[in-house]
Design a protein around this nucleic acid. Structure first.
Lengths: 166, 166
DNA sequence: TTCAATTTTCAATATTTATTGAAAATAATA
DNA sequence: TATTATTTTCAATAAATATTGAAAATTGAA
């Protein structure tokens, strides 16, 4: 397969997968573009390659830096900022796991804990407590999984995990 | 905490979390409502409780049935259809894992495999292959995790998992 | 079968989310 | 310092997604 075709298809596929998981398309596409790029790219190149506006490119690049998976890179003699993606994919996975945990799971864990103080003098209250308690287990499982990824050593995770679950 | 307040907050929180993970709000809310309900609910009750239209309620209930986590329940003497959510939350988690795997992960695995046939006679091609190969590992990890959930026995999963990753 | 209750469909509409683009702010050079 | 390149911001706009509501289809009772 020709490189250009593969590149196109990859950026496309990655963008689609991302939206299904609550990440916006442009973000996934810029990330994909930077991942496969052999050198740091400036904003204009990103704009041109993905056919997006300056504002969009700028804000999304900033978001990616907030996620800790893209960083600025100074090119000697160049005035424009250039960007590179973290190329170690396990590091990327760990970083994403860490952020989603912090941003999304932790708040839910806290809310569920609070809801456990529901009045259980009625059947509805009892059923409610049961559901919340069960749900806490599942959410804690998800939390542990993400945390395992966060804490895992590079290759250790894969081997250990597959050892147990294959 | 009063039941009504807890209920309200739960439906709200669950709806918000869902959108962050690419599931629509109504779907999460109807599911939440059915989860905590002690009896099967008909469409009108769902409409009234969540203040949504008939069309929305109907289509979303159908979606939930497609996901295999809600089913129709006949109430003797009642003509209207009633709905119940699967109350075993681990069964729900397994079902969701199964569906997301089927609908989202599997297609991506296949695409990545195809992209490995990229022409590697250029540096870009080589870098590309490297990224795709690494990414395959991560996606396979996610796939294995979901599959582990799918295949797991009720409580086995929790204990095994925590044993390894705590 | 007829008729009313119930469910389903889907074009129209509303809402939410993403993107643009140009003005303002900032940074670098001379 | 003034000038120009570059980045950032954000109100306006577009695009995507979700929801409505009423007509059509289906179902069950009589």
């Amino acid at each position: 397969m020709q490189y250009d075709e593969a590149k196109e298809q990859f950026i496309q596929t990655w963008g689609t997968l991302a939206t299904q998981w609550g990440i916006n398309r442009t973000m996934a596409q810029i990330h994909a573009l930077l991942l496969i790029s052999t050198e740091p790219l400036d904003t204009d190149t990103v704009m041109e390659q993905l056919q997006i506006s300056r504002g969009n490119a700028n804000m999304t690049l900033r978001d990616l830096m907030d996620w800790g998976i893209v960083s600025k890179r100074l090119i000697p003699g160049e005035r424009k900022e250039h960007f590179v993606a973290e190329k170690d994919i396990w590091k990327v996975a760990r970083q994403i796991a860490k952020e989603r945990r912090r941003r999304e799971i932790t708040p839910v864990v806290e809310t569920l804990e609070q809801l456990k103080s529901v009045d259980t003098s009625t059947p509805e209250g009892q059923q409610f407590l049961q559901v919340i308690t069960d749900l806490s287990q599942v959410v804690n499982f998800a939390d542990s999984t993400l945390n395992a990824v966060v804490k895992a050593e590079e290759n250790w995770l894969i081997s250990q995990f597959l050892k147990v679950f294959r």
